[in-house]
Amino acid sequence: MAGPVLVIGATGTVGSRLVMELGQRGEKVRAATREPAAARRRSGDAVELVEFDFERPETFAPALAGVERVFLIARPGDEQADRVAAPLIDEMKRQGVRHVVNLTAMGVEMLEGMALKKVERYLEDSGIGFTHLRPNFFMQVFSGGPLLTDIRSTGAIHVPAAAARISYVDVRDIAAVAAAALSEAGHVGRAYTLTGGEALDHHEIARAISEAAGKTVRYVPISEDAARRAIEGAGLPPERAERLVGFYRLVRHGFCTPVSPDVHTVLGRPPISFARFAKDSAACWR
């Protein structure tokens, strides 16, 4: 019988949904988190919880004991994600892990110096079976965090995207693809770009949210300087602000516009639409 699947980042946006998906497939899940006691208080004993911290390599081997499959998310907001991921991948190899489903980002295959690209390459060179998942921006950025605060407090979406379109993807689709890759044959050695089924500009996004929430939400394009001020005003350091502004620079150049068939290919159904996401999330904007 197959051993447990180790889910790194199990309390995060994608990881928590993946734990549910794997459970529904009858998989035994080991949920990795920095604070298992706190997670246990929230979730009870439904899944096995294990302590794991990228900055504490001594947590790697106990978390990996008896594991052959791993879901890896290597700190996507960290420009040195490869620094902490490489020792973990080394330990996976020592422990006999056979397959890693690795969450990175759309387009990293074209960005050689990006930390997540380095993680991909290191995993490939390790000899462990891999599947790369490269998602676009999550639809859920509008139902949590700074953009939700923006919508609630101002009735508007303020981002430096100009008129660019983005093929936003629902986290539920990302988790479903990850679960399929971890529990079904045929995904080792593959890389999937995960997008929604359409690319929308932010005026269209605002209209969809307005319709679902029953209130007017506008899109207000802003400059890079205004975005930096807003990000730093929210308490993020200048280097983080610059990184986010840089992502939107790619957005304005059409980097996040393409629509991929990969969600449909893996799941056998169309991706969740933004209209469906908005309807399901409407309560948070009211």
Results as ranks from 00 to 15, higher is better:
residue 161 A to F: 12
residue 182 L to N: 00
residue 193 T to R: 03
residue 150 D to Y: 11
residue 201 D to Y: 05
residue 193 T to G: 15
residue 167 S to C: 02
residue 198 E to Q: 13
residue 193 T to N: 06
residue 206 A to Y: 01
residue 157 I to C: 10
residue 179 A to W: 03
residue 154 T to H: 15
residue 156 A to C: 03
residue 176 A to F: 13
residue 170 D to W: 07
residue 213 A to N: 11
residue 195 T to Y: 08
residue 171 V to G: 07
residue 159 V to W: 02
residue 222 I to L: 05
residue 194 L to E: 01
residue 158 H to F: 13
residue 198 E to A: 14
residue 202 H to R: 02
residue 223 S to W: 12
residue 154 T to L: 10
residue 223 S to R: 06
residue 154 T to A: 06
residue 220 V to A: 00
residue 163 A to S: 13
residue 198 E to L: 06
residue 205 I to Y: 10
residue 217 V to S: 06
residue 195 T to C: 09
residue 194 L to Q: 03
residue 168 Y to A: 02
residue 157 I to F: 10
residue 180 A to Q: 11
residue 187 H to W: 01
residue 203 H to R: 09
residue 195 T to V: 07
residue 176 A to T: 08
residue 160 P to E: 11
residue 171 V to R: 00
residue 161 A to W: 08
residue 201 D to S: 09
residue 196 G to R: 02
residue 195 T to Q: 06
residue 194 L to R: 01
residue 194 L to N: 00
residue 163 A to T: 09
residue 206 A to W: 14
residue 172 R to W: 13
residue 185 A to F: 12
residue 156 A to D: 07
residue 216 T to P: 07
residue 187 H to F: 04
residue 206 A to V: 00
residue 165 R to Q: 10
residue 179 A to Y: 05
residue 204 E to D: 14
residue 158 H to N: 13
residue 174 I to S: 03
residue 212 A to N: 08
residue 181 A to N: 11
residue 157 I to M: 04
residue 217 V to R: 00
residue 171 V to L: 13
residue 150 D to N: 14
residue 152 R to N: 15
residue 179 A to S: 10
residue 165 R to W: 09
residue 160 P to R: 05
residue 162 A to G: 14
residue 219 Y to E: 00
residue 155 G to W: 14
residue 153 S to V: 07
residue 173 D to Q: 03
residue 158 H to G: 03
residue 218 R to E: 15
residue 180 A to F: 01
residue 167 S to Q: 11
residue 189 G to H: 06
residue 205 I to V: 15
residue 211 E to R: 12
residue 192 Y to T: 02
residue 198 E to T: 10
residue 157 I to R: 00
residue 151 I to L: 08
residue 193 T to E: 14
residue 155 G to S: 05
residue 161 A to V: 03
residue 159 V to L: 15
residue 167 S to K: 03
residue 154 T to Y: 14
residue 210 S to C: 09
residue 150 D to V: 02
residue 154 T to S: 12
residue 186 G to L: 04
residue 185 A to Q: 07
residue 182 L to G: 07
residue 194 L to I: 06
residue 218 R to W: 12
residue 182 L to C: 06
residue 191 A to W: 09
residue 196 G to M: 07
residue 191 A to K: 01
residue 197 G to A: 12
residue 174 I to Y: 01
residue 179 A to K: 03
residue 177 V to L: 05
residue 158 H to W: 12
residue 190 R to W: 11
residue 177 V to K: 10
residue 214 G to N: 08
residue 209 I to L: 15
residue 192 Y to D: 04
residue 184 E to W: 11
residue 210 S to L: 09
residue 185 A to E: 15
residue 172 R to T: 12
residue 165 R to I: 08
residue 149 T to Y: 08
residue 206 A to T: 04
residue 191 A to S: 15
residue 224 E to K: 11
residue 209 I to Q: 12
residue 164 A to S: 08
residue 206 A to E: 12
residue 191 A to E: 13
residue 191 A to L: 04
residue 184 E to F: 13
residue 164 A to E: 07
residue 196 G to S: 06
residue 211 E to N: 12
residue 198 E to H: 11
residue 185 A to L: 02
residue 208 A to Q: 13
residue 216 T to H: 13
residue 178 A to G: 08
residue 218 R to A: 15
residue 171 V to I: 04
residue 188 V to E: 05
residue 222 I to E: 04
residue 200 L to Q: 06
residue 155 G to L: 14
residue 164 A to V: 03
residue 189 G to R: 00
